[in-house]
């Protein structure tokens, strides 16, 4: 085995398939997209090199800022909702005294395995302004807060769509946090118990601080999912009313597939990739920098 490890030819041969596959399905499309972002290109003809023309146009485009704002709203709500409620749910089922915790664990995870189309249709019914669950609840409670949830041009629509995504993926974050919490050695809790700490204090002082690395991963997932959001808008609002629920991903498909401006679409895609990379780098730089070992 030692001889094998020291043989660079053998190592290269074994690594080559993975490198080639990665190059074909990740590196090549990325580089190709980057190159095409410098062209005025309709996806069919050769295109014309315009340097940073697409990027300059992008930063002057009002729709870019609407999309960017919506991406951040989406990311923020996903983060608060999924990490907040995900933590509460994970800690609830972590507690051995919780009644029916196995059932709860499965129930929390069910939305994750449902198709996004099914989930969106379910919520479309609940958001229906005439006979939807939410407005009916307000009516029953005598509260005059009936909303046209998905047809509002204010931020109501994007928040309404984000809630659906938050609800659906919450179980996934819960599973990550739960798995992280389960790996914390029992003796920390025993020590806390001996010191007379309450459950709340134990979680605040032990569980949550020791989950810093898990939270970092969850945060990266949440923010990138928010910035890349597409499917829920496509099914529920088609980006509307008008462009009020557009995100950068939606703007990219609009440019590439509806306007045949593939070059501009590539520039949006590059901006999106850079945005996600930047956010990931910032999170890695400032959160949970020290690796915890138990």
């Amino acid at each position: 085995m030692r001889n094998f490890k020291n043989n660079p030819v053998a190592t290269s041969i074994f690594v080559l398939p993975a490198v080639l596959t990665f190059s074909m399905i990740v590196a090549y499309p990325l580089i190709s997209t980057l190159l095409k972002s410098f062209y005025e290109w309709d996806g069919i003809t050769a295109g014309t090199f315009i340097g940073f023309g697409n990027f300059s146009r992008l930063f002057k485009d009002d729709l870019f800022y609407t999309s960017l704002r919506n991406g951040f709203i989406f990311a923020l709500i996903l983060t608060v909702f999924q990490l907040g409620l995900g933590t509460v749910m994970a800690l609830t089922i972590l507690n051995g005294k919780t009644f029916g915790r196995n059932t709860l664990r499965r129930a929390y995870f069910i939305p994750v395995v449902l198709s996004v189309t099914v989930v969106c249709q379910l919520w479309l019914s609940m958001y229906n302004p005439e006979y939807g669950l939410f407005n009916k609840l307000f009516e029953l409670l005598g509260i005059s807060y009936r909303q046209d949830w998905l047809s509002s041009m204010s931020v109501t629509s994007i928040i309404a769509v984000t809630m659906v995504s938050s609800w659906q993926s919450m179980g996934y974050q819960m599973a990550l946090i739960y798995a992280g919490a389960k790996s914390i050695p029992e003796h920390f809790y025993e020590a806390a118990k001996i010191d007379g700490a309450t459950t709340f204090q134990t979680h605040m002082k032990i569980t949550i601080p020791l989950l810093a690395e898990t939270y970092k991963i969850c945060l990266i997932f949440c923010i990138n999912a928010g910035l890349n959001a597409f499917a829920h808008m496509q099914i529920m609002t088609k980006g509307g009313p008008g462009t009020s629920t557009y995100t950068l991903t939606y703007m990219m498909t609009r440019s590439a597939f509806r306007l045949d401006e593939y070059g501009y679409g590539c520039a949006i895609a590059v901006t999106l990739v850079l945005q996600c990379l930047l956010v990931t780098l910032i999170i890695n730089k400032f959160i949970a920098r020290e690796r915890l070992t138990y």
């Binding site: 047809s151 509002s152 041009m153 980006g239 509307g240 009313p241 008008g242 462009t243 609009r254 509806r258 306007l259 045949d260």
Partner: peptide
């Protein structure tokens, strides 16, 4: 005019939404 068509479709939605 595809650019007009796309933008106009979005504006029509805004009109229906109460603009």
């Amino acid at each position: 005019n595809k650019k007009f068509a796309t933008g106009f479709g979005e504006l029509l939605q805004k009109l229906v939404a109460g603009e």
